[in-house]
């Protein structure tokens, strides 16, 4: 039915010029388009261009030397590690949450949806802070390590023996990254799966498919683009997060610095060329993310025609 209507509209549109009533005067169109483009160019494109210009200001040699610096490589490795743990964790969570929320009726569902979005409302600095409170040596985790009669004494002994710290160390960075990227996958999948409904899953049930078969062969193919979309955004944020990671990182060069933190250190040392060289990696990631995102949107739009 919907296709018929669109088709009809297309035909009408072809036959008659677009209704004058919904058209703005040419000068209005020109003016607004110019304002919009200038605003976007000035506020968004210019900073992006500045990153690459500053990065290459001292020449290609300096640029690449900055990237293969020992500490730079360590920062890159840590950033990849944090993303490699937090993104899959949030993918599993996002799929589970979307499945529970869209396939079943239960009380408190709207509260749950709101709670999932909470991390987006929390300042990055606070995201880091709360992990310091829980996992810092002054926090609950520290109390546990120093407790005289702890739960699971063996665990305490092991943690103390291994000198296992979370804050100002890699685990803290992974946790903070997981927190700030928490909602991305779930909030892409929930509306998508709500819109798609459950008829195909029910059809699979009547045809004798098992739970895993339903998910693998019916649900997953239908949500794959939405899932991919969520993963790209989640990954971009995971690799680029600054505030939260800055709080929980010990800022130890070569050990607990991610790329954004390394950018900050270089910048504060007035090593601008190197700082912008590292920043250009993240800018490239941003461009890559936007290109992929547009591609997914286009793919999604074309696969849902008709």
């Amino acid at each position: 039915m919907a296709t018929t209507v669109t088709h009809l509209k297309a035909q009408l549109g072809a036959a008659a010029p677009v209704s004058r009533a919904t058209r703005d005067a040419p000068w209005v169109r020109w003016l607004l388009t110019a304002v919009a483009l200038l605003f976007l160019a000035g506020f968004l494109v210019l900073p992006l261009a500045a990153v690459f210009t500053e990065a290459l200001r001292k020449g290609v040699g300096v640029y690449f030397r900055a990237l293969i610096d020992h500490d730079a490589l360590a920062a890159i490795r840590l950033t990849l590690l944090a993303a490699a743990i937090s993104v899959p964790a949030n993918v599993v969570f996002g799929v589970a949450a979307a499945w529970a929320i869209t396939k079943f009726q239960f009380r408190g569902k709207n509260v749950l949806i709101t709670l999932i979005d909470l991390p987006f409302a929390v300042s990055p600095v606070i995201s880091g802070l709360i992990y310091v409170l829980v996992f810092g040596l002054q926090g609950w985790y520290g109390h546990y390590l120093n407790a005289e009669h702890p739960w699971f004494p063996a665990l305490q002994a092991w943690l103390v023996a291994k000198d296992f710290t979370i804050i100002f160390a890699v685990p803290g960075i992974v946790l903070a990254t997981t927190f700030v990227t928490f909602p991305f996958v779930a909030r892409e999948l929930i509306p998508l799966m709500q819109a798609q409904g459950s008829d195909e899953e029910y059809a699979a049930v009547t045809l004798g498919a098992s739970g895993w078969q339903i998910f693998r062969r019916v649900t997953l193919p239908n949500i794959k683009w939405g899932l991919f979309y969520g993963v790209i955004l989640c990954n971009a944020r995971a690799m680029g997060e600054f505030g939260a990671v800055s709080v929980v990182s010990g800022h130890i060069r070569g050990e607990t610095n991610t790329i954004p933190l390394h950018v900050e250190i270089l910048y504060n040392e007035y090593n601008f060329a190197a700082a912008f060289a590292m920043a250009s990696l993240l800018a490239l990631l941003a461009i890559f993310t936007l290109v992929l995102k547009s591609f997914v949107e286009w793919r999604y739009a074309t696969s849902h025609k008709g």
């Binding site: 008829d199 195909e200 029910y202 009547t206 498919a209």
Partner: peptide, 19 residues
């Protein structure tokens, strides 16, 4: 269970697997 009842069910909007 629905899968073991031996029913063929045709949904109002067909529910064909679109992929």
């Amino acid at each position: 269970d629905a899968g073991k009842r031996g029913v063929g069910f045709v949904f109002q909007h067909y529910a064909l697997f679109r992929h």
